[in-house]
Design a protein around this nucleic acid. Structure first.
Lengths: 175, 175
DNA sequence: CTTGACTCTGTATTCGACTACAGGGTTTAT
DNA sequence: ATAAACCCTGTAGTCGAATACAGAGTCAAG
């Protein structure tokens, strides 16, 4: 394979750049291992392979990856994302069920945000009260004993961020 | 929360009901195994034991548990909760560092909610557009190709709920 | 005196989403 | 021609927050 690939014109629709996995990783900021993992779990379709067995991604994969990231932020699981994409790839009317999923997720999202707002308010009130009144021992900073806070909470669970403090070897990151 | 509390003259402070683990589980909706797990991970202090070795919880543990749940919803990890509680239990001024934690968490929370709102908006716009224009094949429901959506997203990750579809043996749940 | 409901300890498994590593082939720059 | 820098497969480990399970002791009722 020659390196200067770009001189070839496909006379077709788009750039259709072929990218090796490292390049995709760099551009998407997603990490090689994760890309392979996505492929294994069916969230990315298997890309073409060049003679040596290297994955050759079509550059449109970058949009896929962007979508995946966005969807994740919105609280979609990889499984849901997989379904949405599969639905899409099955040709025809990709949207029927997908819309339902999205609509449901939106509702949940609203509910979740509302709850977060409620608790945020309570927490910040507790914090304020607590900054005013100093550290009264036995009062345990107000909120721990649950003094200011009324409702006991629905079985909603763990809305954490898990944001990456992790040691990531490859960072990539440009555009 | 006052039943027949005052009749007993502990000459002290509170009811001080002693509860076995099953009772605590039922009242808090938290599950026996999880209570033991919390104890092991230092988030609940070891309760008294009665002759037979059974844990005898002081009923104030219920407030602790309520606090833990609230804090979880707000995105505190068990580790953070453990620290807050430890700080408290160490007597003196429990609040110094804790307030910092809480303040930081509040800021993060705001940021996170803002981002959720942004994406929610984009998603719902995409959904709307998409319901209007039917399923134009190749357009993949608008948003999948990332057509309507501009910004590529910060390294924020996985804000999912993980809400329990799980087979839970004990449900508890009353108040 | 035997059920059955509870409880105990301790270890193992689950789940989602990665991340790491071993052990090897290929490409590219020196 | 040799090392660095990629790439491959496949399996295993991590992390947080639980859950499950095995094997035993305890207790109130029939």
């Amino acid at each position: 394979m020659s390196k200067a690939t770009k001189s070839f014109q496909q006379a077709d629709l788009e750039p259709r750049q072929r990218l090796k996995i490292g390049e995709v990783s760099k551009r998407s900021g997603i990490g090689i291992e994760t890309l392979r993992f996505y492929e294994k779990s069916g969230i990315l379709s298997r890309p073409a392979r060049s003679g040596n067995g290297y994955r050759m991604y079509d550059s449109e994969v970058l949009e896929r990856l962007a979508f995946i990231k966005r969807a994740q932020v919105l609280g979609f699981s990889l499984e849901e994302i997989r379904q949405i994409i599969a639905e899409k790839d099955s040709g025809e009317s990709p949207c029927a069920a997908v819309r339902e999923v999205v609509r449901r997720r939106l509702a949940e999202l609203d509910e979740r945000m509302a709850q977060m707002r409620r608790y945020r308010k309570e927490l910040s009130e507790a914090l304020a009260e607590w900054e005013r009144s100093g550290d009264v021992k036995g009062h345990i900073c107000g909120l721990i004993e649950g003094t200011h806070i009324k409702n006991p909470l629905t079985p909603q669970r763990a809305v954490r961020k898990r944001e990456g403090e992790k040691r990531r070897k490859q960072d990539g990151k440009d555009e």
